[in-house]
Amino acid sequence: MNHLSSVKHVIIVLSGKGGVGKSTMAVQITLGLHAAGKKVGLLDVDLCGPSIPKMFNLEGRDIHQCSEGWLPVYVDKEQRLGVMSIGFLLQDLDDAVVWRGPKKNAMIKQFLGDVYWQDLDYLIIDTPPGTSDEHISVMEALRAYNPDGAVLVTTPQAVAVGDVRRELTFCRKTGIPVVGIIENMSGYVCPHCSECTNIFSKGGGKALAQQNNVPFLGSIPIDRHLTLSLDKGENFLESNPGSPALAAINNLVKRFIALDKDLP
């Protein structure tokens, strides 16, 4: 487990609700920190639905072993952005991982203990939705390493906010600090008439943050170029300068960069 002791900051991306953009945010934060010159690792502990390999266009890559443990798959040549996901361990992309809790827990322990990240500035952990095995295991394993905390992602509608409220309780009960709440999919600008529609309502994330006295990290508008670039595994930061979603994401990343300055 000592591979994590050389990691400066650990951030966990959580949400009670599925499909709100946990992986999307995890990828964008990772890319943003990487662009700012940080050395970043991204660990995907969604074992039944790993989307991270696809979002980096790393599908089909294999994990290599060295004497220290598993080597993450690197996105860049300089090896400053490493990724680890169960997707790299599957024979076939369509293989279902039909595992019950104990087996998932064992896998997560291996991911947290055996991956040789080397010296990282940030380790971002992407999780599946819920408050169950994966989350309990990650929290238990990380407790000794004083993680910076959890980022909660929600969409604005009440149905999603309802589940994220439970996730806040989870953070409180497991003693993990909450870095803040991100509201994703906050409005969509029609490409024909530029009318902004709040498809999934508006303001739910901000209200939740205020009610619970946790920082609100900003809202990210729906941008079809963002979904598109993740589907293709492109770097959204590079391919779409000028997008309003990008500005919101950059603001977010600044918050995380600030975490690094706070420490000696």
Binding site: C190, H192, C193, E195, T227, D231, K232
Partner: peptide
Amino acid sequence: FICPKCHKSSVIFPPTT
């Protein structure tokens, strides 16, 4: 997605495959 204002359709989650 059908825009409630101009009633034109646009694709938010593109079916790339």
